[in-house]
């Protein structure tokens, strides 16, 4: 089926199962929708069928969590094949993955695990992202992860690595401002220094989400749970960079303790307000 090609404009929301019926029954005013690719791989599933229906009315971005691009394992050809079939079916406007690894020796950990920011990791990611793009026949956006630790082995900062990765692999960047804030808070670094280091010409999508504070004896650690509204500090980052961000597709992610669609849409409108984009 040939869908109408859509550009991702304005603010989108993550499409999650509790809200699917709203999008099957009508067309809520979301700019665009993002799905987790791994939830839609089964061709004969209800979810895939529903997504085909929803795709008729919305631009879709497919956000992956399973390619494990940073793993020293080779890319899973089976997974690439399933993803390719999904992308050919749905014709997403963007596809994205993470600067992380999630499998080793054929075992998957269902989480985004941290990489050391070394030349070896950079070269490995350039190779893996290049291969994945060639096999999928599409450009990938790579997202910065939330971090709770940093390795002593480091040749560069995370934004430096992302810049170089995009320059040498031809990928674009998906910048998650909540992840930047979470990582910088946990590592005691300045999120604005991070933002200042990014090559914004390479940024093709923005994520905004909430996180959880966990009290430890030494202080508060921030955990990337996507189960809360976007925090004030992240809105502050949005405000500071609004002239740049308003030209980039922006997504509200909410993956746990999922609220009603109205709450999610209100959060998307709030993003439009902070970005200075007119409401629908």
């Amino acid at each position: 089926m040939a869908y109408q090609q859509h550009l991702l404009t304005g603010t989108g929301i993550g499409l999650r199962q509790p809200h699917v019926e709203h999008f099957l029954q009508g067309t809520p005013a979301a700019g665009w929708l993002e799905v987790h690719s791994e939830n839609y791989l089964q061709e004969k599933s209800k979810r895939r069928h529903q997504l085909r229906h929803i795709r008729n009315h919305y631009a879709i971005s497919c956000h992956g969590i399973g390619l494990s691009l940073g793993s020293s394992d080779p890319l899973s050809q089976t997974h690439i094949k399933s993803l390719k079939a999904l992308f050919n079916d749905i014709e997403p406007s963007l596809i994205s993955e993470h600067l992380s690894w999630s499998s080793l020796n054929g075992r998957f950990y269902n989480d985004l695990l941290p990489l050391p920011y070394t030349h070896e990791s950079l070269n490995h990611m350039i190779t893996q992202v290049g291969q994945a793009q060639d096999l999928l026949g599409r450009q990938i956006l790579i997202e910065n992860p939330s971090s709770y630790l940093a390795f002593k082995q480091a040749d560069m900062s995370e934004p430096e690595l992302l810049n170089q990765l995009s320059q040498h692999s031809g990928c674009k960047l998906l910048l998650d401002l909540n992840n930047i804030f979470v990582s910088c808070s946990n590592m005691n670094t300045d999120p604005y220094d991070y933002l200042a280091s990014i090559n914004w010409h390479q940024v093709g999508e923005i994520h905004l989400a909430g996180h959880t504070l966990k009290q430890l004896p030494q202080g508060t650690i921030r955990i990337d749970t996507h189960n809360n509204p976007v925090c004030e500090e992240v809105w502050g980052m949005v405000t500071t960079y609004k002239d740049t961000l308003k030209h980039i597709p922006c997504l509200i992610e909410w993956d746990a303790d999922i609220p009603s669609l109205d709450v999610l849409m209100a959060e998307a409108k709030k993003a439009q307000h902070y970005l200075g984009i007119a409401h629908d």
Partner: peptide, 18 residues
Amino acid sequence: SDLLVDSHFTPTQVFNIY
């Protein structure tokens, strides 16, 4: 612990998140 940058949280605390 030998591989991580020192932070105000212990390696066990941060590793337990993963």
